[in-house]
């Protein structure tokens, strides 16, 4: 309903707003639930690339799937330019689905091996209520937009390289002119030389089409390079949200500091900080998370209050948000310039 009000009006405010999102899965057998996402809030501005980083079990993919309405939303709101995506049902949901499109990690699994590239890109257009008159021309311009050419249109996926397939997936996601592109580990399976090309493509799409991107990855280096702002997730919650530059040069959460320290630096020993890993152990199970601050079991700055009280995500000086009771006191080390 609110979506109708927005039609034609000049948009204001963020494009996407995620508010206190909870995603919950029932564990088979055991009478328990797993809170994959537990109270996550963030916004993505128009034309912004927002990065979401976290290790396995952090819930970053569940956030993406909730936005796509592919995961069960237990609580919270997801609003895309005034439309409550989380409340849409049936026909309405289908009508709004085109506004958010997703690119996945596995570029092969997302393409039907029997379809040509032309058919794959045209498919979303064909599924619309009113297919565009010049679908053929649109497909041709899309394939060029992602850095391939028309000679690729009549090929089948198996004749393409991994990078080319991912470009086709992006063209296909762009076919319906979405407002938000959700990339879940979209470059993680690619060789670095190919990954660099896809990162460049996403940057140019943002600059030229003004598209907003939610870019999810476990690779801090890639996220920090591409994103305007970055959210760091740990065990279903946001630990920190800040601009990519502030996050890497001056982290405010101990987990962000530990991630930066663990990142292997491809630099000669003379230009590398010889730091021991800052955290031991592994991420605890999301089925039975620690009380209070979820990072406390691995945090080297842990104090009594951390077990008793859950730190809220709150603003700190410098413009970022952090969920740590002691953010003001801690002097944390960022990346070496």
């Amino acid at each position: 309903m609110t979506g109708l009000l927005q039609d034609g009006a000049m948009p204001a405010g963020p494009l996407l707003s995620v508010d206190a999102l909870c995603v919950q899965f029932d564990l088979p057998g055991a009478k328990a639930t797993l809170k994959a996402v537990d109270g996550v809030s963030f916004e993505i501005g128009r034309g912004e690339i927002f990065g979401l980083i976290g290790e396995s079990g952090s819930g970053k993919s569940s956030v993406a799937r909730a936005i796509m309405r592919l995961a069960p939303i237990a609580a919270g709101a997801i609003t895309l330019a005034g439309t409550r995506l989380d409340q849409l049902q049936g026909r309405e949901l289908r009508r709004h689905r085109r506004r958010v499109q997703m690119v996945f990690q596995d570029s092969s699994d997302s393409l039907d091996p029997r379809m040509t590239v032309r058919q794959a890109i045209a498919e979303p257009l064909r599924m619309q209520d009113a297919p565009p008159a010049d679908a053929g021309g649109l497909v041709a311009s899309l394939i060029q937009r992602v850095g391939l050419d028309e000679s690729h249109l009549d090929r089948k996926p198996h004749t393409l390289s991994g990078g080319q397939k991912q470009r086709v997936n992006i063209a296909r996601a762009l076919a319906l002119s979405p407002e938000l592109l959700v990339c879940d580990e979209a470059v993680s399976a690619l060789d670095v030389s190919v990954q660099a090309g896809i990162i460049n493509l996403l940057l140019s799409l943002q600059q030229e089409l003004g598209i907003s991107v939610l870019f999810i990855s476990h690779d801090l280096g890639v996220v920090a390079h591409l994103a305007d702002r970055v959210g760091v997730m740990y065990l279903g919650r946001l630990a920190e949200v800040a601009s990519a530059e502030a996050l890497t040069s001056r982290p405010r959460h101990p987990y962000t500091e530990a991630l930066l320290a663990a990142e292997p630096e491809p630099r000669p020993s003379t230009h590398r900080a010889a730091r021991p890993p800052l955290i031991a152990g592994e991420v605890p199970s999301a089925a039975n998370p620690p009380s209070g601050c979820r990072f406390r079991t691995r945090c080297r700055y842990v104090r009594e209050r951390c077990a008793a009280e859950q730190p809220p995500l709150r603003p700190v000086d410098g413009g970022g948000l952090v969920a740590c009771h002691f953010a003001e006191e801690l002097v944390l080390e960022g990346r070496r310039a």
């Binding site: 090309g197 280096g221 310039a337």
Partner: peptide, 16 residues
């Protein structure tokens, strides 16, 4: 090809 600090959002070298 590898993103590096201090070059935020600059095009990366790729090997086409």
């Amino acid at each position: 090809c590898i993103p590096r600090a201090g070059r935020h959002r600059q095009p990366l070298h790729s090997i086409p």
